[in-house]
Simulated assay, not measured.
Amino acid sequence: MGLRPTQYRCASESLLRRLRKDGSLPRIHPLIDLCNAVSVAYAIPVGVFDVSALALPLEVRYAHGDETYVTFGGEKENPAPGEVVFADREGQAHARRWTNRQSGASAVREETSRVLIVAEAMHETGTEDVRRLAETLAGELAALWDATPRTGLPTRTDPRFQLPHSR
Rank of each mutant, 00 (worst) to 15 (best):
R109W: 13
R167Q: 08
V60M: 15
A43E: 14
G139K: 00
G74W: 09
E59K: 06
A105K: 07
G73N: 12
E111M: 11
L34A: 09
A93G: 03
A134G: 03
V46K: 05
V46A: 11
V40Q: 13
G139I: 01
L153G: 00
L31F: 13
R167T: 05
Q7Y: 08
Q92E: 04
E124I: 06
V48E: 15
E110P: 00
C10I: 13
R97Q: 09
R20S: 14
R9H: 08
G2L: 11
G82Q: 05
T155N: 02
T6C: 06
D129M: 09
D129Y: 01
M122F: 07
P5G: 14
D88I: 01
R156S: 06
G152P: 00
D66M: 06
D22T: 09
E83Q: 08
Q162C: 02
P5A: 15
Y8P: 01
A11L: 14
T99K: 03
L19P: 03
P57M: 13
M122C: 08
L15E: 13
S24R: 12
P5S: 13
R97L: 04
M1D: 13
D22E: 15
H165I: 10
L133Y: 04
L34I: 03
R109A: 15
P79E: 15
E140R: 00
P149R: 07
A121R: 08
I44Y: 04
L54W: 05
A143L: 01
A138V: 00
G126N: 10
G65F: 02
P81M: 12
A134T: 03
L137F: 01
T68A: 07
S52I: 05
A87Q: 06
C10L: 11
P30D: 11
V60F: 15
G73H: 05
R101Q: 13
E120R: 06
G91E: 10
L163W: 06
Q102C: 04
W145R: 01
Q7D: 15
A138Q: 02
W98H: 05
P30W: 12
R150M: 06
